[in-house]
Design a protein around this nucleic acid. Structure first.
Lengths: 204, 204
DNA sequence: TGCATATATAAGCATTTTCCTTTATATGAT
DNA sequence: ATCATATAAAGGAAAATGCTTATATATGCA
């Protein structure tokens, strides 16, 4: 689970409260590691337990005291050693593809409707990414170096590249369906599947 | 959750046991909806409860009885109506991107090592996709129509397109790091961030 | 005047997802 | 002769995620 390490990553720059962190998450890593309040507060509690962060409680009146979390030396070390371990390829679940896989059950018109909705969702996502650089300026005490800023932008670039690839795919698919050309760029399953399979079997 | 609907989708073609279904999953939908044995057996139990499938128990000696699951009329209807509802955009968690985001903490050499590992993982995934069409021939009682087969191949095409987009991205990134050109195709955060921000603030 | 929003934290529950273990036997490979 | 693999099913536990609710006040907008 990356969540605690993302938190450590941000606390390196400056101490922050859970509330601050939530806001930071939403304009930085949300597209590849979304987290909500409850996740963040829970993770912070665990980090305190293993002394990766320490709390400084700042009294306030009228609302809960601020709990400012500071990263510890131990936390820094944990972060670095985690960063050095290569990540396993993260598997993805994609409901839209399940729809496509079993789309044989629907009429072309219905499939096209689904795909249009999917395409709109993708376009919204893209628009969202485009707004991120500006939002970054308004948040938090970050003064990244050129190199750091480069890495940040790379994750955005990744998001944009991937969404664009999906858009290209979905547009191509829609066109083919509209033209009733049910062909894929991947080698089609032979329709005489059975015969071919029998042949293979005998061949063994 | 798509899992029960994927199961219904396959049971449309022919009745199957949990064991059969597991094998089918692994050569068809694994790249966008992986499932292991325990998921499948649990989902089947739920489907029986709501009468979307029915069990036919076939006695065997020496090993557990086969439980052959048949889709019911109700199950067919459930599947169709689920398929017609547009899917929400599925959010993705990506540990590799967390690494990139905080790569400022590592030396270029270490980052390059990580990226190389990531690239290798992607290449393996791609190789895996390339094998799927052949594997499909060896499984199960499917005799898809040309149109159906088209939809199946589309999901593969999607997987391939996406992995290739990621490969292109990671290769580009490695090159830029090797050349120490820390620039992104996305507009960089201005280094004089503070000044710009102050200006904005005054402007409000 | 009233309503939404920002500030601040956190518990609680439901659901999902993963991972691991157990039970049995036949078959084929080393 | 032994070891791995295929066949078949399912329970248990833990981790991760998602969603809701509660508490309290200041501030700005309509």
């Amino acid at each position: 689970m990356s969540l605690p390490y993302v938190i450590l990553g941000f606390l390196q720059y400056a101490p922050a409260t859970g509330y601050d962190l939530k806001k930071t998450f939403d304009v930085t890593v949300r597209h590849f590691w979304p987290a909500d309040q409850s996740h963040i507060y829970r993770a912070l509690a665990e980090l305190v337990e293993r002394d990766a962060v320490r709390v400084e409680e700042i009294p306030q009146s009228g609302r809960p005291n601020r709990k400012l979390y500071h990263i510890t030396e131990r936390g820094r070390q944990e972060l670095i050693s985690w960063l050095r371990q290569p990540a396993a390829v993260s598997r993805v679940r994609n409901t839209a593809l399940v729809h496509v896989f079993f789309a044989g059950n629907l009429k072309d018109a219905d499939v096209l409707t689904l795909l249009e909705a999917y395409e709109n969702g993708l376009r919204e996502e893209l628009a969202c990414y485009r707004r991120i650089p500006d939002m970054l300026h308004d948040v938090a005490p970050f003064r990244p170096s050129k190199r750091e800023s480069f890495f940040w932008m790379l994750t955005l670039e990744y998001g944009i590249v991937l969404v664009e690839a999906q858009l290209a795919w979905v547009r191509g698919v829609r066109k083919r369906i509209q033209a009733k050309q049910y062909v894929s760029t991947v080698e089609d399953l032979p329709e005489e599947g059975k015969a071919v399979r029998e042949k293979k079997r005998r061949g063994r």
